[in-house]
């Protein structure tokens, strides 16, 4: 539950995702101290475990960690792409922050996906329908919000594409033919179509040219700045996190090992793993 007096947009409580049979030892025998996310007893993969954190309204929170540490798993659980094995999540924008969104009906979950949260996937193929035009991709979201006016849909789509700096002239082209950076920007436009108060961004800049990266990062910054959207930004790039976020959580073997102010994480890392991560950067 979220206490209404605090300005928490999203509260995660003990989220775990275990692949495999799972046994009583799974949680205890995995994690950063054990140096693995594979349970030695039953072989299950503890992709993430005991994830608790609060995302404040208007905040960009970073999640960093090495490949396989569970970042995408966490984000996909939040967007209901995966069902968490344990855990609860509360949204201040839904049911007054009193309802665990994981135990809502799938219809309600769909409402949350389309109206309260937007996602940008690590892989554009997950977020975009490549055989729909890029306007159609944005339209899909608008149509879930019962906007059945073609003119209005196209107007809103071109507004969003302008904002994300995708040439409006290419609105009716297939994103398949777009560059990686443009695909990510179409994903962002799509994610924002219904003005969700929360965005989940998974490695938005990975694999992009440096100059394109810069544009995408500037866009994200301006979205927070102008629209006050709360965001969870997943990246294994500390530079991205340094630029975008005020607070950062560090993940390792499926756990959060440290969470703090981003400048503190960078300059005074507490956990062994964070120190390694920061040092490998320099």
């Amino acid at each position: 539950m979220i206490d209404n007096s605090t300005e928490i947009a999203l509260s995660l409580q003990g989220i775990s995702k275990i692949y495999g049979p799972s046994c009583p030892a799974c949680i205890q025998k995995t994690g950063p101290e054990m140096g693995t996310n594979i349970c030695p007893e039953c072989g299950s993969i503890v992709a993430c475990a005991d994830i608790s954190l609060d995302l404040h309204a208007g905040e960009i929170l970073g999640i960093v960690g090495e490949s396989g540490s569970g970042k995408s798993t966490l984000v996909k659980c939040l967007y209901f792409d995966l069902e968490p094995t344990y855990g609860e999540a509360y949204l201040s924008y839904y049911g007054n922050g009193r309802l665990n969104i994981f135990s809502e009906t799938s219809q309600k979950k769909r409402y949350i996906r389309n109206h309260i949260m937007g996602i940008v996937y690590q892989n554009p193929h997950m977020g975009l329908r490549m055989n729909f035009s890029c306007g159609g991709n944005v339209a899909e979201k608008l149509l879930t919000a019962d906007c059945y006016h073609l003119g209005k849909i196209r107007h809103r789509a071109s507004e969003l594409l302008t904002k994300t700096e995708v040439p409006v002239a290419r609105m009716d082209d297939l994103p398949r033919n777009f560059s990686g950076g443009m695909q990510q920007r179409v994903q962002i436009a799509k994610a924002m179509a219904n003005n969700p108060p929360i965005l989940l961004l998974d490695e938005v800049t990975t694999g992009l040219d440096v100059s394109v990266q810069a544009k995408v990062l500037d866009l994200i910054k301006s979205l927070q700045w102008e629209l006050g959207i709360s965001m969870l930004v997943v990246s294994h790039d500390l530079g991205v996190v340094r630029l975008l976020t005020n607070r950062t959580a560090v993940m390792k073997n499926g756990r959060i090992v440290e969470i703090g102010l981003t400048d503190q994480i960078l300059e005074d890392p507490q956990h062994v793993y964070t120190q390694l991560l920061i040092n490998s950067l320099l």
């Binding site: 703090g260 102010l261 400048d263 503190q264 300059e267 005074d268 507490q270």
Partner: peptide, 9 residues
């Protein structure tokens, strides 16, 4: 100064 600003814990 960094402790006061909490860049250091």
């Amino acid at each position: 100064l960094k402790c006061i600003y909490r860049t250091y814990i």
